[in-house]
Design a protein around this nucleic acid. Structure first.
Lengths: 201, 201, 201, 201
DNA sequence: AATGAATGAGTCTTCATTCAT
DNA sequence: GATGAATGAAGACTCATTCAT
C-alpha cells in the first residue's frame, strides 16, 4: 500500500490520516501553505512528524489532496443548490450564488487558501478540477438561463461562470475580513441585484 | 537608515532602485512572493544582493513598496477611465471595467501577485489603499449610476464595487492563463452584459 | 520543540548533545563567542549544522546552556573544596582559592569565556547563578572567618567575595596567557599572602 | 597624511576624529566591540560612514586606538595617585586602589570594554601597554612596600599587582551593575581591609 | 577632507525529507 | 504503522570595507 493510497477509513491508519488532515486544513487556512510547517501540522495533530510523510508522502501531496477535497465539497454544495432550486435559469443562479456564499462563510479559511494558491502552476490539476466542478455548475445554470431566454443569446457562459464565481469569492473573503457582522442575505441581495441588471433589480 | 527614503529619481540611487524594482516585479509575478529569492532579484537586476537590502531594507519592504506602487498605478488607470467616459453612470462603469481588463492585460503578473498576497494580514495597508483607490473609483461610478436612476435605489455600492472588481480580476487572470488569444473586447462585452442584466444585454 | 529538553543522557540524542557541547566549549574558549560560527561547531562535532539547532535551538541557547553548565561545575569545585578543608575560616578560604585556580587551570578557556561574556545583559541569569553559586561559597567561607574572629567584624563579605573571586580569575587568566610554566602553588602562595596581610604572610 | 596619523588637534580633521572617538567609546561600552557597528558609530557621531574609515583606517584600528587611549588615561590616574600619596608602601597602595575605583566609577563603560576584550590575541599590544602602565604602577608601589618591610620579603609583586588590579576591576564592574548606590569609600575600605589582612584591618 | 551608495563574503536559522529503530 | 533524531540545501539578512564623486 503506497503512501498516497487513502486506505480504508476505519482502521488505525484512517484515524491518523484524519487527524493530520484536520490539523493541516486549520493551519494552512490560518497561515497559508508556505508559512505552515510540517512540524506544526504534526504537533497539532498529535502525531510524530514522520507520520505525516508516511501517510501523505510529502507536504505538497498532503496539500493537493486537501485542496482537491475542498474543491469536491464546494462542487457538491453548488450542484446541490442548483438541483434543489424550484426553477432553473436565473432563479437557480441566485441559489448557487447563495450556496457559494454560505460555503465560504462556513469554510472561510478555505476561500483564502484557494485564492492564494489556485494559480500556482504546481496545482493546475486542482484548478482543472475546479473548472469542471464548481465552474461547471455555474456554466450549466447559465446555459439553462440562456436556453430559457432569460439571458442574452450567445452569452459566453464560460467567461460568465468564471466572472460570477470570482465575484462571489472576492466578496465572501472581504466580508469575512472587514464586515463579518453583515448578514449574508444582504450581501446576496446585492449580488443578485447586480446580476439581474439595472432598475429591474 | 536610508532604506525608507525614496531618494530623488535622477541620481545613481534612483537608477539602482528602479533596476531592482523592475527585476522584483517580474520575478514575483512569475513565481510569487515566497518563491522569489532576493538572490534572484539581485542577479536579474544586475546588482549585488546587499544592494537590495541597502535600498529596500528587507524583502518584505521591497514587496510592499512594490504592491503599493502597483495599486497606485491601477487606481490612476481606473480613475482616468472614469473621468474620460463620455457619460457618467453605467456607461462610465463599462469604461472602468474595460480599463481594469486592459491594466491586468498589460501588467498581468501583477494581478496574480495581488490576488495571491492581497489578504495577508501583513499587508493590510495595501488592501486599505486598494479600497480607497481602485475600489473607490468603482464605488463612485456606481453611486452616480444610482443617482442617475440607472441602478436600483439603495444598492450597497461598497459591496457591489468589491464584487465587480473581483469579477474582473478573476476573469483577467483566467484569460491570461487559459485563453490568451481571446480578444479583450469580447470578454468586456460578456462582463458588461452580465452587469447590465438579462435580455437587455 | 525538544530544544530545551535535556533528554536522557544515554540515548542517541544525549550522545549527540555531548559531542556538540564539547566542540562548542573548545571553540568558544579558543575564539570567543561571537567569533565562533555554528558551522565550525558542527564540523568539529562531526554532525550536520542543523543538528546543532535541533538540539539547542539557537547559537545563544547553546552558549547559555554551556555557560550555566560551566558555572555549575565551578560551584561544585569550590564548595567541594570548602567542605573538604580541615578547618573553616581563613584556612578554608585558602583551599577555595586553590580550587578556583585549579579549576581555571584545567578549564582555562572557560575562564576567558566567563570574563568576556559575563556582563552581557543577555546572560544576566548566568551571572545570577554565579553569584548564588561560586560567589556564595566564598561569602560563606568569609562569614565563617568573621565569626571565628579571623577577619574584622563587620566586613562586607559580599564585596569581599567578589573581590577575591575576581582576583583569582584575573590571575588565572594571566598565568595561562603569559606564564604557563609558573607552578600553581607559587601563585597560590602569593595570593594567600596577599589576603593574609602584611608581614604575617 | 595617512589614516593613522592623528593630525593636529585643532583643525577640521581633529574635530571629526574627536566626534567619532566619543561616539565609539559610548557605543562599544554599551554593547561591546563586536556588537557595535560602524554604521552606528557614524550615525551617533553625525558623520558619514566613510569618514570613520578615512580617519581610522578600520574598525579594529579605531578600537585599538581607543583602548590604548583609555589605558593611558588609567595609567596616568594611577601613577598620579601613587605620586601624591603622603607615604609610600601600603599607604600608597591604598591610594592607588582608590584611584582605580574612582577611574572606573567615572569611565565605567571602559572597565567593561577592557575586561571583555582585553584577552583577545588581536590586542596583545594593548595588554602589554596595560602591564607596563597600570600594572607597573601597582608593582612599583608593592616593591616599595616590600622594601619598607610592610610586605613579606620575596613576594611575587608581578602576580600580586595583577591580582589587586583584577580584584578592583571586578568589584568596580559589579558595583556599577548591581549596587550603584553603595559609596565608593565603603567599597574601598573593604578592599583595603582585605589586603591589609586579618584582624589588623 | 568627506561622503554614502554599492558590495559580497559570511552568518544564523528554517524546514522538508530521510531512515534506523 | 509510527517515530523523531539527524540532515543539508537554501534563504534572509548583516556589515566592514571600497571608491567614485
Amino acid at each position: 500500500m503506497t503512501a498516497t493510497t487513502p486506505a480504508e477509513p476505519g482502521g488505525r491508519r484512517g484515524e491518523t490520516r484524519r487527524k493530520v488532515y484536520r490539523a493541516a486544513v486549520e493551519l494552512i487556512a490560518e497561515q497559508g501553505f508556505t508559512a505552515t510547517t510540517v512540524d506544526a501540522i504534526a504537533e497539532r495533530a498529535g502525531v510524530a512528524k514522520g507520520t505525516v510523510f508516511y501517510n501523505f508522502g510529502s507536504k505538497e501531496g498532503l496539500f493537493s489532496s486537501l485542496l482537491a477535497h475542498g474543491v469536491g465539497q464546494l462542487t457538491d454544495a453548488l450542484s446541490g443548490a442548483a438541483a434543489a432550486a424550484p426553477r432553473p435559469g436565473v432563479a437557480a443562479l441566485d441559489a448557487v450564488v447563495l450556496a457559494q456564499l454560505r460555503f465560504f462563510d462556513e469554510y472561510g479559511p478555505f476561500a483564502r487558501v484557494l485564492v492564494a494558491e489556485m494559480w500556482r502552476t504546481a496545482w493546475q490539476e486542482v484548478v482543472a478540477g475546479l473548472r469542471e466542478g464548481a465552474l461547471g455548475v455555474y456554466q450549466g445554470v447559465l446555459d439553462e438561463a440562456v436556453a430559457a431566454g432569460e439571458l442574452r443569446e450567445g452569452l459566453d457562459t464560460g467567461t460568465a461562470a468564471t466572472a460570477i464565481f470570482g465575484m462571489v469569492l472576492t466578496v465572501a473573503i472581504e466580508r469575512r475580513a472587514l464586515h463579518p457582522e453583515q448578514p449574508l442575505e444582504e450581501v446576496h441581495a446585492t449580488l443578485a441585484g447586480l446580476i439581474h441588471g439595472r432598475i429591474t433589480g
